[in-house]
């Protein structure tokens, strides 16, 4: 039960959606874009947000695309994690989507919602960062398509009123060798202690992480450390851990020390598997 009411809009176009947002904003009224709704509904229920309006963007055609076009895979922002998995078009993304929340929730949680979520893990960002994905955004100032990494720094850096329309993934990434591992405290359905996604590009590993710090990231410095073929696994892992962009995240799921222990184990496992041709 959500104790308060809001206005519900279901626009049919990007333009309509942005117009609604601008109009409300000019009246000083808070609106949120709404797709799968899981997080927004929860936050409304518990009282951490109280929007005046929700703008359901699931009826906007561009946001629902899921297809190969022009050497790129387009994934609309309102595609559910389950739709992305079931399409089987992007194997690494499929692995990541399969480990976010649970299967039934994967039928509701959307790509856009996961990228923009307030929960810090945003694990769909990992495959996209590794694949040099581009992202198309739409807002009151119109549409723009930019590399994801230019607007995803810790979390989505959107302008007011901007929404995600879709992401585009170059085809090389769809068939690249890849690796995904998520470690949780105990239960499989849980936030990650450590999530690692890796993809092989030009015989080098690219790596992105969630859970180990307070935001998801790809680190080229850590990649360099881990790609040093001449050094032992142990040395590479140690160096990579020293290059974490911030102190290790800690909460009740896992202390910082323990997360780091799990992180190092996971990286070592990854390097071994890489070495053994298991990736």
């Amino acid at each position: 039960m959500i104790p308060f009411n809001f206005i519900y809009y279901r626009p049919d176009s990007l333009q309509e959606a942005a117009d609604i947002y601008s109009t409300l904003q000019s009246k000083g009224q808070k609106a949120v874009y709404f797709a799968g709704g899981s997080e927004i509904i929860t936050m409304c229920r518990t009282g951490s947000i109280q929007p005046k309006a929700v703008i359901d963007i699931k009826n906007i055609p561009e946001c629902g695309l899921l297809s190969l076009y022009n050497q790129k895979l387009q994934i609309g922002s309102v595609c559910t994690l389950n739709q992305i998995s079931e399409s089987k078009l992007f194997p690494l993304m499929r692995l990541a989507c399969g480990r976010i929340a649970d299967h039934t929730n994967q039928c509701r949680i959307t790509l856009g919602g996961n990228l923009c979520g307030s929960i810090i893990y945003r694990e769909t960002s990992l495959p996209l960062l590794l694949a040099d994905a581009e992202i198309t955004l739409y807002g009151p100032e119109g549409e723009r398509t930019v590399p994801l990494r230019s607007v995803f720094y810790q979390c989505m850096q959107l302008k007011p009123g901007e929404m995600i329309v879709q992401v585009q993934i170059p085809v090389w990434a769809l068939s690249a060798r890849h690796y995904h591992i998520k470690k949780t405290a105990n239960e499989k359905i849980d936030y990650p202690l450590v999530s690692v996604a890796a993809i092989c590009k030009d015989s080098k590993l690219r790596l992105a992480f969630s859970g180990i710090c307070s935001y998801p990231f790809r680190s080229e410095q850590m990649e360099s450390a881990l790609n040093q073929q001449t050094k032992s696994f142990e040395e590479r892992v140690k160096q990579a851990a020293e290059l974490l962009p911030e102190p290790v995240y800690a909460d009740a799921e896992g202390s910082g020390e323990y997360r780091l222990f799990v992180f190092k184990n996971t990286l070592r496992q990854l390097l071994e598997d890489w070495d053994n041709g298991k990736i």
Binding site: Y8, R10, S38, K58, N105, C107, R108
Partner: peptide, 13 residues
């Protein structure tokens, strides 16, 4: 045809 948790869905949806 798909499972949905009805506590996380608006009736209008």
């Amino acid at each position: 045809g798909w499972p949905v948790k009805s506590c996380l869905m608006l009736a209008v949806e």
